[in-house]
Design a binder for these strands. Structure first.
Lengths: 148, 148
DNA sequence: TCAACTGTAACCACGACGACTACAAATGGA
DNA sequence: TCCATTTGTAGTCGTCGTGGTTACAGTTGA
């Protein structure tokens, strides 16, 4: 589930938005990104890894290397980012291995189904927004409420 | 919020369903509930604490004491249970304290708004189901999908 | 050739979670 | 009245996820 004690998604959104704001073809180093997000450069690289593999960003090694977007900001939905970083987690959090009683089995099944349904709903909500929306400051309480 | 590495919600649903299945006015001890859910009796009591304060269950101390539902199973929505146990947590997980740059502020604001929107959506999904539904085994993939 | 980056692995500190122990307080039954 | 049973709660502990930090190999522009 959304076992979000972790801040990867938040860091990713922060960094992507920053990259989206870099107009010319300039690349930005992990250190610069890390400073802005208030985290460690290594952490930034660890977060951006999956996004690079998915083709959302590009990285360049060597002197004057760094990171840049590989798509237009409006092409990167927050749902995609979430799925790439947290897709495997459970939102609700299950329990125990194999309850022996009938009730236990039923509960287990119900929770599994619910977990999947909730995860879908969560991604669906995030799918409504893109990095462009974040950059433009469009995500306000009213706007987020709107499309309910 | 939905930072569910924890299993409180799952344990709560399990225990409530169990209590709902006890037909006569019999009370069930923490130990019995714990055994069924595969967790510790103390953990069960800690999970049920907030639910008791909200009036969903009653507890009786002393010999032959234990727990019982305080409402009909159909009156206990999973959304309520979630809110009582995880209501304060973040689903998305924020980061850093106060980014100094303008972009950082905007991202922070957007994430906060999104977090709230997602939390609402999550509870809304769970609100569709009650302990009765779990007990009756009604929560299947098709059923959960249905009301989308 | 060299300084500046990325890519990773390794280690550490911190915090959340839940098991477990312990003990006070309540309470039903003998 | 006494005792066994059960809740209520505090405290300790082991485990695990998370992210900071260091270290170092590989890449690359100047």
């Amino acid at each position: 589930m959304a076992r979000s004690t972790n801040t990867r998604f938040a860091v990713a959104v922060h960094v992507l938005t920053l990259l989206a704001g870099v107009n010319d073809g300039r690349v930005v180093s992990s250190e610069e990104l890390a400073d802005s997000a208030g985290v460690n450069p290594v952490h930034v690289r660890r977060v951006l890894g999956p996004l690079r593999e998915a083709g959302l960003v590009r990285s360049h090694a060597g002197a004057r290397g760094g990171w840049e977007l590989a798509c237009r900001p409006e092409g990167i939905s927050l749902g995609t980012v979430w799925r790439l970083l947290q897709g495997d987690d459970h939102v609700l959090g299950l329990h125990g291995p194999n309850p022996s009683c009938v009730t236990g089995e039923g509960v287990q099944r119900a929770l599994t189904v619910l977990d999947a349904a909730i995860a879908d709903a969560l991604v669906a909500q995030l799918e409504r927004f893109s990095v462009r929306d974040v950059l433009d400051g469009k995500i306000t309480a009213q706007f987020a409420q709107a499309a309910r």
